[in-house]
């Protein structure tokens, strides 16, 4: 119980993490704030590894705290069920992102982008890493400017 109480503020914090849904706006925002874009393709209601990745990495305090300072997060979701259906506009935006970065339809696919929108580094499937290790990999990739 005490553990749960300890986690409570973290859970509230986590809900404050914002996933952008418009890539162009996110790239602009990133360059203004000197951050890096991390783009994630997911199937939030059918893709088991996507759900696991969100739970174990993206919603982990280690990732949340670091990403808030350094990343602009973008999510392109491809939900399947009727109740999660996106607006036509959002669906079109997501498909445009997939057309550019995920033509082979890999879920989850996570990509770290350069300021010009090209891929700096990508992860196919759920990385078998802890949140802290994943953060470390991103950090290394950002610091090594090409």
């Amino acid at each position: 119980m005490s553990k749960l109480l300890f986690l409570l503020p973290l859970l509230m914090w986590q809900s404050q993490v914002k996933w952008e849904t418009d890539l162009d706006a996110a790239i602009k925002m990133a360059s203004e704030k000197n951050k890096t874009v991390l783009l994630n393709f997911s199937g939030s209601d059918w893709c088991a590894p996507c759900i696991q990745m969100k739970k174990n990495i993206f919603n982990h305090p280690d990732f949340i705290s670091w990403s808030a300072e350094n990343l602009v997060l973008v999510n392109a979701d491809f939900p399947r069920s009727k109740k999660n259906k996106l607006t036509a506009e959002q669906q079109m935006r997501n498909e445009r992102m997939a057309e550019q970065y995920n033509r082979t339809g890999i879920f989850p696919l996570t990509a770290l982008l350069n300021p010009d929108g090209s891929i700096r580094k990508s992860w196919e499937g759920m990385p078998k890493l802890s949140a802290a290790e994943f953060v470390e990999e991103i950090r290394k990739n950002i610091s090594h400017q090409p």
């Binding site: 990508s122 992860w123 196919e124 990385p127 078998k128 990999e137």
Partner: peptide, 8 residues
């Protein structure tokens, strides 16, 4: 055995 860094 878990494959670390299966992305490279």
């Amino acid at each position: 055995q878990p494959l670390k860094q299966n992305d490279s």
